[in-house]
């Protein structure tokens, strides 16, 4: 699996202004984050129902320049947050190809029915909550337990909580609700910061766990281990049940041609593509692979 390094901040809202985004990323690096996710928001309830488009989800924004700039310091993931009110989103999600391009998919339910759906059948990885409108939805025990069993993660954003006193109260209420309903499992902290000043260091965030009713260990896991698990789960959703996958990284270079038989078969397998592939024992899984990822057995 792809390597990611602690610490994680899995919610930095996307901004059109690349300069502002760069400032935030620089600050995140100086604070010690190694993996961040840029968040895009898609409001399913507000879309135009009359128009029939093949893929309602927008493709991820290109952050090529940023990715190249911070290549060795930081890993940038793409995340989509889907706001929705009813379960019709599930159908759209199964048919969407754009959705597979995102590293993480989060759901933000707006009604009680949507929240229950989100915990029980939603095909994403993360459940998040609206911070601006106040927390009116609180997850009930059964839905929460099912969500935890399915491997969903629940997000608490600390950025807005630092900004505003009312949001802070709401977030504390939300966090303590998890504590009451099911001993606070599968929680991650993320920033949701729109400017560099709202970011806090990973240890500060772990310390914030105290006011959110988590223990010291859980607090540390919320910025480290749980995020890694979330990332692995998201990868699993994208490429099927695997524990190893092969991906092309660059142009083809055949360094060893002593075994001509092998080389021939390799060339045949490559099918004229210009890309070399990292080799690995591919252990298959009876699940479909996306066409871009080729599998090959190590000889």
């Amino acid at each position: 699996m792809e390597k990611t390094y602690p610490f994680y901040d899995l919610c930095i809202p996307y901004q059109k202004d690349e300069k502002a985004l760069r400032e935030i990323i620089k600050e995140a690096i100086s604070l010690g984050y190694k993996t961040i996710a840029i968040e895009q928001v898609f409001d399913h309830s507000r879309r135009d129902a009359t128009k029939r488009v093949p893929d309602i989800f927008p493709p991820p924004v290109t952050l090529k320049s940023l990715e190249d700039e911070f290549k060795n310091q930081l890993k940038i993931l793409q995340r989509l947050t889907i706001l929705y009110v009813d379960v019709s989103v599930a159908h759209a999600m199964t048919n969407s190809l754009n959705l597979k391009k995102y590293d993480l998919v989060a759901g933000q339910p707006k009604t009680d029915a949507a929240l229950t759906h989100c915990c029980t059948t939603f095909a994403g990885d993360l459940v998040t909550f609206d911070t601006d409108g106040g927390v009116k939805l609180l997850v009930n025990r059964k839905a929460y337990q099912i969500g935890v069993k399915r491997g969903l993660f629940f997000e608490i954003k600390y950025g807005p909580a630092i900004r505003d006193s009312n949001v802070r109260k709401d977030m504390i209420k939300l966090a303590h609700n998890y504590c009451v309903r099911g001993k606070t499992k599968s929680i991650i902290f993320s920033s949701g910061a729109t400017n560099p000043f709202e970011l806090r260091g990973p240890y500060d965030v772990a310390n914030l766990a105290y006011i959110f009713g988590l223990s010291e260990d859980q607090g540390k896991n919320a910025v480290n281990k749980a995020c890694r698990q979330l990332f692995l789960r998201a990868q699993g959703r994208r490429i099927g049940k695997t524990f190893m996958f092969v991906r092309s990284t660059g142009p083809v270079v055949f360094s060893d041609s002593s075994d001509s038989d092998d080389a021939d078969s390799e060339k045949a397998a490559d099918d004229g593509s210009d890309e070399n592939e990292e080799m690995g024992n591919f252990v298959d899984t009876n699940s479909p692979e996306p066409p871009s990822k080729k599998k090959k057995k190590l000889v």
Partner: peptide, 18 residues
């Protein structure tokens, strides 16, 4: 747990990094 919530130190807008 109070330190991350602080945004003003004296009369300067500043934050703590533990």
């Amino acid at each position: 747990s109070t330190l991350p919530l602080i945004t003003m130190i004296g009369d300067v807008r500043a934050k703590f990094h533990t």
